[in-house]
Amino acid sequence: MKFRIKFNKKNYLKYISHLDLMRLFERTFNRIDAPIEYSQGFNPKPKISIASPLSLGIESEEEWMDIELLEKVDEKDFIKNVNSILPSDIQILETEYIEDNTPIAALINWSVYEIYFLLLEDKKKIELENIIEDWLKQEEILIERYRKKGRNKILVTENIIELMKDIELKSLKNNEVVLKGKLKIGESGTLRPRDFINAFIADNNLNIDIDSISFKRISQII
């Protein structure tokens, strides 16, 4: 049966990769003897799937994962036992048994991000808000990125204007900027926060400290 888990990934643990995270959950479930279903075949693997893997270096307040269980477990005990083994910066927040067979990844269309960076020039709040508004008014925002085509990588130009919405300035204090917005994720297109911010900075000629950029996923929505 499908068991849906919401968890977070914070602070330094944003620096562990998706594969590392999978290994961490695998080991943790093993340690509490969770009745997880294994795949068939030569190299059996526990059935764990994470909705939309985070890139290395991004924090998240809301990650989703489905696991297949052979029998029901008590949800409270499960959360308590798993969280006692997991590090404090990766913790299970909620669980739910799911009847619907749709994989979690297919349900999610938007990721909500907060993006932080440090401006190296003085800008008023209203100036930045106008910049954002004007930028979004355009018919197209083009970015170049590498796409896999067969075994090769080719450079393609892509219009990302449809891949973002509700972009706003969340705060500006001492030149520290926090943007908030929804970026598309999933089969109908994906806009990575790194590509988004690079385009925003370049298009608007903002002078910022590149090494200061950091991302946080706030939630994932349908």
Binding site: Y12, Y15, L86, D89, S214
Partner: peptide, 19 residues
């Protein structure tokens, strides 16, 4: 530290916090 970790390969080498 955060600025540094963003730039390097396999930053998990440098964070500790393991089980």
């Amino acid at each position: 530290l955060d600025r540094v970790l963003k730039k390097v390969d396999r930053p998990a080498r440098y964070i500790g916090m393991e089980i």
